[in-house]
């Protein structure tokens, strides 16, 4: 691709310092790759290879100890690895989404309110935000009688549907997915796949970790294996990533 990448990850390194053990835990070192608009990158690797850690470091739940994550935002280019907290908060509201395996359900907040909240925060009127929330809850197969119930009492699968509806209700420029299909039934998996294909077609760049990558096989453009640090593109050609 000849366009400027949306994301340029260069030499990204994450180490955890654990004071109570007086030790360091090296998660990954010197990871570099580019990501363009509309590209879908799959992260592979064995348990503990650092797939989720890499996603969280780009999202900035984890602070990198080295390297850069240059991101072309609507406000200008910024290095997510060194950006001020308020800028990260701004980008999370407007441009970058993160889907985990867990719903952070606040007690006594109805499913439809959890899902519509990102739209409300973006200034969408309540009635319209609720309409869209119900649409996405329906798409992911959450039954209407649950829309006004509190998700903290839902099963893992139902919670994950609420989580996905909330995370994907608002189009982002960059989407980070950490095992979003875990605990989903076939219907919800198909709905997720449809939504991801739609977002990708609209230019959303996606980085994902999947327990069963076969679920998203048709969307994958490139893969990085964090165990071996091998990159493969859609033609199957492999190259080793610079460390």
């Amino acid at each position: 691709m000849t366009t400027t990448p949306l994301l340029r990850v260069q030499g990204l390194t994450k180490t955890f310092r654990m004071y109570h053990l007086d030790s360091m835990l090296h998660a990954f070192e010197g990871v570099s790759f580019d990501l363009h608009e509309g590209e879908f990158l799959l992260l592979r690797g064995h348990n503990g290879a650092g797939k989720s850690t890499l996603l969280r470091t780009i999202w900035r739940s984890y602070l990198p100890v080295g390297g850069h994550v240059f991101y072309r935002s609507n406000h200008g280019e910024i290095d997510l690895a060194n950006a001020a907290d308020v800028d990260i908060a701004l980008l999370r509201r407007e441009e970058i989404g993160f889907v985990t395996q867990f719903l952070n359900a606040r007690p006594r907040v109805a499913a439809q309110d959890i899902v519509s909240e990102p739209l409300r925060l973006a200034g969408v009127p309540q009635a319209e935000a609720l309409d869209q929330a119900r649409h996405w809850l329906d798409q992911f197969g959450v039954r209407p009688e649950l829309w006004r119930a509190y998700p903290s009492t839902f099963s893992g699968g139902e919670q994950q549907k609420v989580n996905l509806a909330r995370a994907l209700i608002q189009p982002q420029k960059l989407l980070l997915l950490d095992e979003p299909t875990a605990s989903l039934d076939a219907g919800a998996r198909a709905a997720l796949l449809r939504r991801l294909a739609e977002l990708k077609a609209h230019g959303v760049a996606i980085i994902g970790v999947f327990h069963h990558p076969g679920d998203v096989a048709q969307l994958i453009d490139r893969e990085i294996d964090l165990s071996t640090r091998v990159v493969a593109d859609e033609t199957g050609e492999e190259e080793h990533v610079a460390l």
Binding site: S73, D79, N82, A83, A84, V86, D87, L90
Partner: peptide, 9 residues
């Protein structure tokens, strides 16, 4: 305590 980088905000 504060990350020093150009601000978007």
């Amino acid at each position: 305590l504060e990350r020093a980088a150009p601000r978007l905000m």
